[in-house]
Amino acid sequence: MINDSALLESRTLRHSVMDRTDVLDRVKALSLLPDGMHVTTAMVATYFEVSRKAIESLVLDHRTELVANGYRVLSGTELTSFKEVSGIQSRSRSLALYPRRAVLNVAMLLRDSEVARQARVYLLDMEYLARTQPVENSPQPDIATLHARIDDRIDQRITHILGKTVVPMFNALIETAGEHQRELIVLRTGVQHIERRLRQHHTRLRRLESPRQERPLAGVMAAMDAMTGREFEHHIATLLRRDGCTDIAVLGRHGDRGVDITALTADGRRLAVQCKRFAPHLRITSPELQKFVGSARVLYASDVALYVATCRFTPEALSIAAEAGITAVHRTLLERWDAGEMLTVLK
């Protein structure tokens, strides 16, 4: 499984993705100097949400690599000329400049920055997608794979029969059962419980049996960022179904009253989900969380509520989520969930 630490350790790997500077603006808007080409050390520190000292220390350790990607320090007449051309105002006798390649280089070297980590994840996502695009004349599945697919269909068929045939049969019998009505209701409840547990067991078994390396993190976030809002909602519904949820309904764009998906968890709790496919550099704010709290708890009477976003949450929004019992599925948690790690609240 490829993870972002690979870029921290391998200069060869960093060099292979150095042209993908567009990743910077996908993760967070990068402000440039008036020349439209460079940023200063202070601007780099602001972008990565770290101290200036952290950037200066990184430059000290990796100066040769950064210089190879355009980093340079101006002084003397060269600095004077740059100030005249760019319009920058500075009394400093020297000025460090970073082109976009050097800023991306910093992202692949800076350990203690969530922004840098997201940039590394995005780079590996793009590489993974590029390497896994379907090609013509792909090989046919082997016998073991075909048997696994058949077993999967049998399990799905059993749960389908329980939910769509046996339970309705009990419903019909209960209406005309008279003195045996109570016993039939108990039996129906038992069948519904078995159905839910079978779905949950099958989902967990498949996750345990599949090798972890077959569920890489790479490719996860780039694929979701490329989705439309509607596609993202259906993708989240697929994850819920994978983790044993039933009665999943993806609500329409109009009239959803602040909730995008409703469902039942594997153990029968009412679930409400809000989905936001936002750009990675944006944030979910407290007013958005407050609106969802009202919709999920009051309008939908949910037992479990998820606010799923492809970006991060402001500290105020996280505080409201914690107080209201809302699970904030931020970008990092969503990445792990999509890769196969079940959300704690759904277990």
Rank of each mutant, 00 (worst) to 15 (best):
R131C: 00
S138K: 12
T176G: 05
S138N: 07
R149M: 07
H234D: 12
A172N: 01
A222T: 07
P211M: 10
V106E: 08
I154N: 00
M169E: 04
R206H: 09
L184T: 00
A223V: 04
H160Y: 03
S138C: 06
D112P: 02
H202R: 15
R117K: 15
Q118M: 14
S113Y: 09
L205Q: 14
T159R: 02
A172K: 04
V167P: 00
G178K: 12
L124K: 02
R230D: 14
V106R: 07
R197L: 13
H235W: 13
P141L: 09
A226C: 07
G178F: 10
E233C: 12
F170Q: 01
M169G: 12
L217G: 13
V220A: 12
R212M: 15
R182H: 03
L198E: 05
H193A: 12
F170W: 02
L205F: 13
R131F: 02
T203N: 12
R120E: 04
N105Q: 14
Y122L: 12
R111Y: 10
R149D: 07
A116T: 04
R206F: 02
L208P: 01
R207H: 08
Q140S: 09
T176E: 12
M169W: 02
F170H: 06
A144W: 02
H160A: 04
I154C: 01
H234F: 14
N105I: 02
T132C: 06
R230K: 11
R197T: 09
L129V: 04
R182E: 04
E214N: 15
P134T: 03
T159P: 00
G219R: 12
D152V: 03
A222W: 07
K164G: 02
M221L: 15
M108I: 09
M227C: 10
I150N: 00
Y122T: 11
A177G: 09
P134V: 06
E175G: 07
Q133E: 08
L173Y: 03
M221N: 15
Q118H: 14
Q213I: 13
R153P: 01
V186Y: 03
L129I: 08
V106M: 11
L198W: 03
Q192V: 04
L184K: 02
L205Y: 13
V220R: 10
A107P: 10
I185L: 14
A116P: 06
E195P: 04
Q133D: 03
Q156S: 10
A172D: 06
M108A: 08
E195A: 12
H201R: 15
E231N: 09
R188F: 04
A172M: 02
I194D: 11
A222M: 09
G178W: 12
H235S: 13
V103F: 05
A102V: 10
G190Q: 13
T176F: 05
G163V: 00
L198P: 03
Q118W: 15
V167E: 04
L184Q: 01
Q200R: 11
V167G: 01
D155M: 14
R197W: 07
R182A: 05
I185E: 15
A107H: 11
